[in-house]
Design a protein around this nucleic acid. Structure first.
Lengths: 201, 201
DNA sequence: AGAGGTTTTTTCACCTATTGTAATTTTGCA
DNA sequence: TGCAAAATTACAATAGGTGAAAAAACCTCT
Protein backbone atom coordinates (compact mmCIF):
# COMPACT_ATOMS: atom_id res chain seq x y z
CA UNK A 1 0.00 0.00 0.00
CA UNK A 2 2.92 2.38 0.40
CA UNK A 3 4.43 1.95 -3.02
CA UNK A 4 5.87 4.78 -5.03
CA UNK A 5 2.47 5.27 -6.60
CA UNK A 6 0.77 5.99 -3.28
CA UNK A 7 3.52 8.24 -2.02
CA UNK A 8 3.48 10.24 -5.18
CA UNK A 9 -0.24 10.71 -4.97
CA UNK A 10 0.04 11.98 -1.43
CA UNK A 11 2.74 14.37 -2.50
CA UNK A 12 0.66 15.70 -5.34
CA UNK A 13 -2.37 16.07 -3.13
CA UNK A 14 -0.38 18.00 -0.61
CA UNK A 15 1.21 20.13 -3.27
CA UNK A 16 -2.22 21.04 -4.57
CA UNK A 17 -3.51 21.96 -1.13
CA UNK A 18 -0.50 24.05 -0.29
CA UNK A 19 -0.40 25.77 -3.64
CA UNK A 20 -4.08 26.57 -3.32
CA UNK A 21 -3.70 27.94 0.19
CA UNK A 22 -0.77 30.08 -0.78
CA UNK A 23 -2.52 31.49 -3.81
CA UNK A 24 -5.77 32.05 -1.96
CA UNK A 25 -3.88 34.02 0.61
CA UNK A 26 -2.08 36.06 -1.99
CA UNK A 27 -4.93 36.85 -4.32
CA UNK A 28 -8.14 35.62 -2.75
CA UNK A 29 -10.26 32.58 -3.45
CA UNK A 30 -12.26 33.79 -6.40
CA UNK A 31 -9.37 35.58 -7.96
CA UNK A 32 -7.32 32.42 -8.02
CA UNK A 33 -7.91 30.19 -11.00
CA UNK A 34 -7.67 26.45 -11.12
CA UNK A 35 -5.11 26.72 -13.85
CA UNK A 36 -2.90 28.70 -11.50
CA UNK A 37 -3.25 26.19 -8.71
CA UNK A 38 -2.49 23.31 -11.00
CA UNK A 39 0.49 25.09 -12.48
CA UNK A 40 1.84 25.90 -9.03
CA UNK A 41 1.56 22.25 -8.10
CA UNK A 42 3.06 21.16 -11.41
CA UNK A 43 0.18 19.15 -12.71
CA UNK A 44 -2.28 19.67 -15.49
CA UNK A 45 -5.54 21.42 -14.77
CA UNK A 46 -7.44 18.25 -15.47
CA UNK A 47 -5.50 16.37 -12.83
CA UNK A 48 -6.76 18.70 -10.13
CA UNK A 49 -10.15 17.11 -10.58
CA UNK A 50 -8.93 13.62 -9.97
CA UNK A 51 -7.94 14.79 -6.49
CA UNK A 52 -10.80 17.13 -5.66
CA UNK A 53 -14.29 17.24 -7.05
CA UNK A 54 -14.41 21.03 -7.04
CA UNK A 55 -12.31 24.06 -6.39
CA UNK A 56 -13.69 24.56 -2.88
CA UNK A 57 -12.95 20.99 -1.87
CA UNK A 58 -9.27 21.67 -1.70
CA UNK A 59 -9.99 23.38 1.63
CA UNK A 60 -12.07 20.59 3.11
CA UNK A 61 -9.57 17.81 3.35
CA UNK A 62 -10.39 16.74 6.88
CA UNK A 63 -14.15 16.51 7.00
CA UNK A 64 -14.20 12.77 6.72
CA UNK A 65 -11.82 12.46 9.64
CA UNK A 66 -13.98 14.68 11.83
CA UNK A 67 -17.07 12.60 11.19
CA UNK A 68 -15.18 9.40 11.93
CA UNK A 69 -13.94 10.83 15.19
CA UNK A 70 -17.47 11.59 16.28
CA UNK A 71 -18.62 8.12 15.35
CA UNK A 72 -15.82 6.43 17.19
CA UNK A 73 -16.45 8.46 20.35
CA UNK A 74 -20.04 7.40 20.15
CA UNK A 75 -19.17 3.78 19.59
CA UNK A 76 -16.68 3.74 22.45
CA UNK A 77 -18.91 5.38 25.02
CA UNK A 78 -18.99 4.21 28.59
CA UNK A 79 -22.09 2.23 29.54
CA UNK A 80 -23.35 4.92 31.87
CA UNK A 81 -22.57 7.91 29.68
CA UNK A 82 -25.60 10.01 28.84
CA UNK A 83 -26.22 11.33 25.32
CA UNK A 84 -25.38 14.80 26.57
CA UNK A 85 -22.04 13.61 27.95
CA UNK A 86 -21.11 11.90 24.73
CA UNK A 87 -22.09 14.93 22.68
CA UNK A 88 -20.03 17.23 24.85
CA UNK A 89 -17.06 14.95 24.36
CA UNK A 90 -17.60 15.04 20.62
CA UNK A 91 -17.59 18.82 20.70
CA UNK A 92 -14.38 19.00 22.70
CA UNK A 93 -12.50 16.46 20.66
CA UNK A 94 -13.68 17.90 17.42
CA UNK A 95 -12.36 21.31 18.34
CA UNK A 96 -9.08 19.88 19.52
CA UNK A 97 -8.75 18.08 16.23
CA UNK A 98 -9.12 21.20 14.13
CA UNK A 99 -6.25 22.83 15.94
CA UNK A 100 -3.89 19.91 15.65
CA UNK A 101 -4.69 18.17 12.41
CA UNK A 102 -1.42 16.74 11.30
CA UNK A 103 -1.71 17.39 7.61
CA UNK A 104 -0.99 21.09 7.73
CA UNK A 105 0.74 23.63 9.87
CA UNK A 106 -1.06 25.88 12.30
CA UNK A 107 -0.80 29.04 10.25
CA UNK A 108 -2.56 27.28 7.44
CA UNK A 109 -5.32 26.26 9.78
CA UNK A 110 -5.98 29.87 10.64
CA UNK A 111 -5.91 30.89 7.01
CA UNK A 112 -8.23 28.08 6.12
CA UNK A 113 -10.73 29.01 8.80
CA UNK A 114 -10.61 32.64 7.84
CA UNK A 115 -11.28 31.77 4.23
CA UNK A 116 -14.16 29.48 5.05
CA UNK A 117 -15.74 32.03 7.33
CA UNK A 118 -15.31 34.77 4.76
CA UNK A 119 -15.97 33.50 1.26
CA UNK A 120 -19.66 32.79 0.61
CA UNK A 121 -19.04 29.82 -1.66
CA UNK A 122 -16.90 28.26 1.05
CA UNK A 123 -19.36 29.08 3.79
CA UNK A 124 -22.10 27.36 1.84
CA UNK A 125 -19.98 24.28 1.28
CA UNK A 126 -18.96 24.16 4.90
CA UNK A 127 -22.55 24.42 6.05
CA UNK A 128 -23.55 21.63 3.71
CA UNK A 129 -20.77 19.33 4.86
CA UNK A 130 -21.55 20.10 8.47
CA UNK A 131 -25.18 19.38 7.85
CA UNK A 132 -24.43 15.96 6.42
CA UNK A 133 -22.16 15.19 9.32
CA UNK A 134 -24.84 16.17 11.78
CA UNK A 135 -27.34 13.96 10.06
CA UNK A 136 -25.02 11.00 10.27
CA UNK A 137 -24.28 11.77 13.89
CA UNK A 138 -27.96 12.06 14.73
CA UNK A 139 -28.67 8.68 13.20
CA UNK A 140 -25.76 7.14 15.05
CA UNK A 141 -26.93 8.70 18.30
CA UNK A 142 -30.38 7.32 17.76
CA UNK A 143 -28.93 3.87 17.14
CA UNK A 144 -26.73 4.07 20.18
CA UNK A 145 -29.57 5.10 22.47
CA UNK A 146 -32.40 3.40 20.67
CA UNK A 147 -34.27 2.84 23.92
CA UNK A 148 -34.05 6.42 25.09
CA UNK A 149 -34.04 8.68 22.03
CA UNK A 150 -36.34 8.73 19.04
CA UNK A 151 -34.78 9.76 15.77
CA UNK A 152 -36.50 13.10 16.05
CA UNK A 153 -35.15 13.65 19.53
CA UNK A 154 -31.65 12.62 18.54
CA UNK A 155 -31.76 14.94 15.54
CA UNK A 156 -33.12 17.76 17.63
CA UNK A 157 -30.34 17.27 20.17
CA UNK A 158 -27.53 17.19 17.64
CA UNK A 159 -29.03 19.99 15.61
CA UNK A 160 -29.52 22.18 18.64
CA UNK A 161 -26.02 21.59 19.92
CA UNK A 162 -24.23 22.15 16.66
CA UNK A 163 -26.54 24.98 15.69
CA UNK A 164 -25.90 26.80 18.92
CA UNK A 165 -22.14 26.46 18.64
CA UNK A 166 -22.09 27.49 15.03
CA UNK A 167 -24.09 30.64 15.50
CA UNK A 168 -22.52 31.64 18.78
CA UNK A 169 -19.03 31.28 17.37
CA UNK A 170 -19.87 33.25 14.30
CA UNK A 171 -21.70 35.99 16.13
CA UNK A 172 -18.67 36.41 18.35
CA UNK A 173 -16.01 36.39 15.69
CA UNK A 174 -15.39 40.10 15.87
CA UNK A 175 -14.65 39.84 19.57
CA UNK A 176 -12.40 36.82 19.29
CA UNK A 177 -8.72 37.44 18.94
CA UNK A 178 -7.43 33.86 18.97
CA UNK A 179 -8.58 30.41 18.05
CA UNK A 180 -8.66 29.70 21.75
CA UNK A 181 -11.24 32.41 22.34
CA UNK A 182 -13.32 31.05 19.51
CA UNK A 183 -13.29 27.57 21.03
CA UNK A 184 -14.27 29.02 24.38
CA UNK A 185 -17.31 30.68 22.91
CA UNK A 186 -18.24 27.41 21.28
CA UNK A 187 -17.94 25.46 24.49
CA UNK A 188 -20.02 28.00 26.35
CA UNK A 189 -22.77 27.75 23.77
CA UNK A 190 -22.58 23.97 23.95
CA UNK A 191 -22.94 24.03 27.69
CA UNK A 192 -25.92 26.34 27.59
CA UNK A 193 -27.63 24.07 25.13
CA UNK A 194 -26.75 20.80 26.80
CA UNK A 195 -27.95 22.05 30.14
CA UNK A 196 -31.33 22.19 28.50
CA UNK A 197 -31.00 18.90 26.69
CA UNK A 198 -29.98 16.98 29.75
CA UNK A 199 -33.59 16.92 30.70
CA UNK A 200 -33.95 14.37 27.91
CA UNK A 201 -31.83 11.98 29.94
CA UNK B 1 -44.65 53.51 -8.91
CA UNK B 2 -47.00 51.12 -10.69
CA UNK B 3 -46.30 52.18 -14.22
CA UNK B 4 -46.07 49.75 -17.08
CA UNK B 5 -42.39 49.44 -16.40
CA UNK B 6 -42.91 48.05 -12.91
CA UNK B 7 -45.69 45.74 -13.94
CA UNK B 8 -43.66 44.37 -16.79
CA UNK B 9 -40.74 43.68 -14.51
CA UNK B 10 -42.97 41.78 -12.13
CA UNK B 11 -44.37 39.81 -15.01
CA UNK B 12 -40.93 38.94 -16.30
CA UNK B 13 -39.76 37.97 -12.86
CA UNK B 14 -42.73 35.72 -12.41
CA UNK B 15 -42.31 34.25 -15.87
CA UNK B 16 -38.72 33.40 -15.07
CA UNK B 17 -39.64 31.74 -11.80
CA UNK B 18 -42.45 29.73 -13.32
CA UNK B 19 -40.48 28.73 -16.37
CA UNK B 20 -37.64 27.61 -14.13
CA UNK B 21 -39.91 25.61 -11.86
CA UNK B 22 -41.59 23.91 -14.76
CA UNK B 23 -38.32 23.01 -16.42
CA UNK B 24 -36.75 21.88 -13.17
CA UNK B 25 -39.68 19.58 -12.64
CA UNK B 26 -39.51 18.21 -16.15
CA UNK B 27 -35.78 17.70 -16.49
CA UNK B 28 -34.20 18.35 -13.13
CA UNK B 29 -32.23 21.30 -11.84
CA UNK B 30 -28.78 20.64 -13.24
CA UNK B 31 -30.13 19.32 -16.50
CA UNK B 32 -31.93 22.59 -17.13
CA UNK B 33 -29.82 25.31 -18.65
CA UNK B 34 -30.13 29.02 -18.14
CA UNK B 35 -30.61 29.46 -21.84
CA UNK B 36 -33.67 27.22 -21.68
CA UNK B 37 -35.16 29.10 -18.76
CA UNK B 38 -34.60 32.43 -20.45
CA UNK B 39 -36.06 31.18 -23.69
CA UNK B 40 -39.12 29.81 -21.95
CA UNK B 41 -39.64 33.19 -20.29
CA UNK B 42 -38.99 35.00 -23.55
CA UNK B 43 -36.01 37.03 -22.50
CA UNK B 44 -32.36 36.90 -23.37
CA UNK B 45 -30.04 34.83 -21.27
CA UNK B 46 -28.29 37.92 -20.04
CA UNK B 47 -31.53 39.33 -18.70
CA UNK B 48 -31.94 36.42 -16.32
CA UNK B 49 -29.03 37.83 -14.38
CA UNK B 50 -30.59 41.21 -13.92
CA UNK B 51 -33.35 39.46 -12.00
CA UNK B 52 -31.37 36.81 -10.16
CA UNK B 53 -27.72 36.71 -9.28
CA UNK B 54 -27.40 33.01 -9.94
CA UNK B 55 -29.31 30.06 -11.25
CA UNK B 56 -30.23 28.82 -7.78
CA UNK B 57 -31.62 32.16 -6.70
CA UNK B 58 -34.68 31.72 -8.84
CA UNK B 59 -35.96 29.35 -6.15
CA UNK B 60 -35.31 31.66 -3.20
CA UNK B 61 -37.66 34.50 -3.91
CA UNK B 62 -39.13 34.78 -0.44
CA UNK B 63 -36.18 34.74 1.91
CA UNK B 64 -36.22 38.43 2.49
CA UNK B 65 -39.87 38.31 3.46
CA UNK B 66 -39.25 35.55 5.98
CA UNK B 67 -36.51 37.51 7.70
CA UNK B 68 -38.68 40.59 7.84
CA UNK B 69 -41.50 38.61 9.39
CA UNK B 70 -39.22 37.42 12.14
CA UNK B 71 -37.97 40.92 12.80
CA UNK B 72 -41.44 42.38 12.96
CA UNK B 73 -42.62 39.72 15.39
CA UNK B 74 -39.67 40.55 17.55
CA UNK B 75 -40.29 44.25 17.32
CA UNK B 76 -43.97 43.89 18.14
CA UNK B 77 -43.57 41.62 21.12
CA UNK B 78 -45.66 42.02 24.24
CA UNK B 79 -43.81 43.55 27.18
CA UNK B 80 -44.00 40.36 29.21
CA UNK B 81 -43.15 37.95 26.41
CA UNK B 82 -40.05 35.87 27.10
CA UNK B 83 -37.41 35.25 24.42
CA UNK B 84 -38.59 31.67 24.20
CA UNK B 85 -42.17 32.78 23.58
CA UNK B 86 -41.16 35.16 20.85
CA UNK B 87 -38.98 32.56 19.21
CA UNK B 88 -41.75 30.00 19.21
CA UNK B 89 -44.03 32.52 17.58
CA UNK B 90 -41.40 33.17 14.93
CA UNK B 91 -41.21 29.45 14.22
CA UNK B 92 -44.96 29.09 13.89
CA UNK B 93 -45.47 32.13 11.71
CA UNK B 94 -42.53 31.29 9.55
CA UNK B 95 -43.92 27.86 8.80
CA UNK B 96 -47.37 29.24 8.13
CA UNK B 97 -45.85 31.69 5.71
CA UNK B 98 -44.12 29.06 3.64
CA UNK B 99 -47.39 27.30 3.04
CA UNK B 100 -49.31 30.37 2.05
CA UNK B 101 -46.91 32.66 0.32
CA UNK B 102 -48.97 34.53 -2.17
CA UNK B 103 -46.54 34.64 -5.04
CA UNK B 104 -46.94 31.03 -6.13
CA UNK B 105 -49.43 28.24 -6.00
CA UNK B 106 -49.29 25.44 -3.48
CA UNK B 107 -48.09 22.78 -5.88
CA UNK B 108 -45.12 24.93 -6.69
CA UNK B 109 -44.32 25.27 -3.03
CA UNK B 110 -44.08 21.53 -2.67
CA UNK B 111 -41.96 21.24 -5.78
CA UNK B 112 -39.72 23.99 -4.56
CA UNK B 113 -39.21 22.40 -1.19
CA UNK B 114 -38.53 19.04 -2.74
CA UNK B 115 -35.92 20.55 -5.02
CA UNK B 116 -34.21 22.43 -2.23
CA UNK B 117 -34.12 19.37 -0.02
CA UNK B 118 -32.80 17.23 -2.84
CA UNK B 119 -30.30 19.11 -4.95
CA UNK B 120 -26.96 19.70 -3.20
CA UNK B 121 -26.34 23.09 -4.76
CA UNK B 122 -29.73 24.23 -3.55
CA UNK B 123 -29.27 22.72 -0.13
CA UNK B 124 -26.03 24.60 0.26
CA UNK B 125 -27.59 27.87 -0.79
CA UNK B 126 -30.56 27.34 1.51
CA UNK B 127 -28.29 26.62 4.44
CA UNK B 128 -26.30 29.75 3.73
CA UNK B 129 -29.37 31.95 3.51
CA UNK B 130 -30.79 30.41 6.64
CA UNK B 131 -27.53 31.00 8.41
CA UNK B 132 -27.54 34.69 7.55
CA UNK B 133 -31.12 35.01 8.67
CA UNK B 134 -30.31 33.36 11.97
CA UNK B 135 -27.44 35.70 12.52
CA UNK B 136 -29.64 38.72 11.95
CA UNK B 137 -32.30 37.28 14.21
CA UNK B 138 -29.78 36.58 16.94
CA UNK B 139 -28.54 40.15 16.84
CA UNK B 140 -32.08 41.46 16.92
CA UNK B 141 -32.91 39.19 19.84
CA UNK B 142 -29.91 40.43 21.71
CA UNK B 143 -30.94 44.00 21.07
CA UNK B 144 -34.51 43.35 22.15
CA UNK B 145 -33.46 41.69 25.40
CA UNK B 146 -30.24 43.54 25.98
CA UNK B 147 -30.66 43.31 29.73
CA UNK B 148 -31.27 39.58 29.79
CA UNK B 149 -29.34 38.00 26.93
CA UNK B 150 -25.73 38.39 25.90
CA UNK B 151 -25.02 38.16 22.20
CA UNK B 152 -23.56 34.72 22.74
CA UNK B 153 -26.64 33.57 24.58
CA UNK B 154 -28.97 35.00 21.98
CA UNK B 155 -26.98 33.35 19.21
CA UNK B 156 -26.90 30.07 21.06
CA UNK B 157 -30.65 30.21 21.55
CA UNK B 158 -31.48 31.00 17.93
CA UNK B 159 -28.89 28.57 16.64
CA UNK B 160 -30.12 25.79 18.88
CA UNK B 161 -33.73 26.33 17.97
CA UNK B 162 -33.25 26.56 14.23
CA UNK B 163 -30.63 23.84 14.23
CA UNK B 164 -32.90 21.45 16.04
CA UNK B 165 -35.81 22.09 13.71
CA UNK B 166 -33.69 21.83 10.61
CA UNK B 167 -32.13 18.52 11.51
CA UNK B 168 -35.26 16.99 12.96
CA UNK B 169 -37.28 17.87 9.90
CA UNK B 170 -34.69 16.51 7.57
CA UNK B 171 -34.08 13.33 9.51
CA UNK B 172 -37.81 12.67 9.41
CA UNK B 173 -38.41 13.41 5.78
CA UNK B 174 -38.78 9.79 4.80
CA UNK B 175 -41.57 9.36 7.33
CA UNK B 176 -43.40 12.54 6.41
CA UNK B 177 -46.12 12.26 3.84
CA UNK B 178 -47.44 15.81 3.87
CA UNK B 179 -46.19 19.30 4.51
CA UNK B 180 -48.33 19.22 7.62
CA UNK B 181 -46.41 16.28 9.03
CA UNK B 182 -43.16 18.05 8.29
CA UNK B 183 -44.32 21.13 10.20
CA UNK B 184 -45.38 18.97 13.10
CA UNK B 185 -41.95 17.45 13.38
CA UNK B 186 -40.44 20.90 13.31
CA UNK B 187 -42.70 22.17 16.06
CA UNK B 188 -41.93 19.16 18.20
CA UNK B 189 -38.20 19.77 17.82
CA UNK B 190 -38.72 23.42 18.64
CA UNK B 191 -40.60 22.59 21.78
CA UNK B 192 -37.99 20.15 22.95
CA UNK B 193 -35.31 22.74 22.49
CA UNK B 194 -37.20 25.64 23.95
CA UNK B 195 -38.11 23.66 27.02
CA UNK B 196 -34.40 23.63 27.68
CA UNK B 197 -33.82 27.22 26.73
CA UNK B 198 -36.55 28.56 28.92
CA UNK B 199 -34.17 28.18 31.79
CA UNK B 200 -32.43 31.22 30.30
CA UNK B 201 -35.46 33.26 31.20
C1' DA C 1 -48.40 62.92 -30.68
C1' DG C 2 -43.37 63.62 -30.30
C1' DA C 3 -38.67 65.02 -28.31
C1' DG C 4 -35.42 63.76 -25.13
C1' DG C 5 -33.83 61.48 -21.06
C1' DT C 6 -33.91 57.23 -18.32
C1' DT C 7 -34.28 52.21 -17.65
C1' DT C 8 -34.17 47.68 -19.46
C1' DT C 9 -32.99 44.44 -22.64
C1' DT C 10 -30.13 42.57 -25.96
C1' DT C 11 -25.86 41.51 -28.28
C1' DC C 12 -21.35 40.24 -28.14
C1' DA C 13 -17.12 38.94 -26.41
C1' DC C 14 -14.89 36.75 -22.83
C1' DC C 15 -13.48 34.14 -18.56
C1' DT C 16 -13.50 30.12 -15.61
C1' DA C 17 -15.17 25.73 -13.65
C1' DT C 18 -16.15 21.30 -14.84
C1' DT C 19 -16.57 17.05 -17.61
C1' DG C 20 -15.80 13.43 -21.39
C1' DT C 21 -12.58 11.12 -24.14
C1' DA C 22 -8.79 9.36 -26.17
C1' DA C 23 -3.81 9.46 -26.26
C1' DT C 24 0.37 9.22 -23.42
C1' DT C 25 3.17 8.45 -19.56
C1' DT C 26 4.25 6.08 -15.12
C1' DT C 27 4.41 2.48 -12.04
C1' DG C 28 3.90 -2.34 -10.34
C1' DC C 29 5.18 -6.68 -11.17
C1' DA C 30 6.09 -11.15 -13.55
C1' DT D 1 12.84 -6.32 -19.86
C1' DG D 2 7.99 -6.12 -21.18
C1' DC D 3 3.22 -5.90 -20.36
C1' DA D 4 -1.08 -4.54 -17.81
C1' DA D 5 -3.01 -1.28 -14.67
C1' DA D 6 -3.23 3.32 -12.96
C1' DA D 7 -2.49 8.09 -13.46
C1' DT D 8 -1.68 12.12 -16.18
C1' DT D 9 -2.17 14.86 -20.09
C1' DA D 10 -4.02 17.19 -24.14
C1' DC D 11 -8.03 18.53 -26.33
C1' DA D 12 -12.60 19.81 -26.98
C1' DA D 13 -16.94 21.16 -25.42
C1' DT D 14 -20.63 22.81 -22.17
C1' DA D 15 -22.50 25.93 -18.93
C1' DG D 16 -22.65 29.63 -15.57
C1' DG D 17 -21.48 34.19 -15.01
C1' DT D 18 -19.76 39.19 -16.13
C1' DG D 19 -18.60 43.64 -18.50
C1' DA D 20 -19.68 46.99 -21.90
C1' DA D 21 -21.84 49.20 -25.62
C1' DA D 22 -25.76 49.39 -28.80
C1' DA D 23 -30.78 49.01 -29.29
C1' DA D 24 -35.44 49.03 -27.65
C1' DA D 25 -39.01 50.36 -24.45
C1' DC D 26 -40.87 53.49 -21.26
C1' DC D 27 -41.76 57.96 -19.05
C1' DT D 28 -42.30 62.93 -18.67
C1' DC D 29 -43.34 67.08 -20.48
C1' DT D 30 -44.95 70.08 -23.88
Amino acid sequence: MVGLRERKKQRTRRALIEAALRLFEEKGFEETTLAEIAAAADVSTRTFFSYFAAKEDVLFYDTGARAELAMSLLAGRAPDESPADVLMKVVDESMRMTATYEELTFENTELRIRLILTVPALQAKALLLLFDTQLALARALHDAYRDRLSLTEAAAAVGALVGAIKLAVFANLDNSRSLQEIWDTGRRAAQITLAGLRSLG
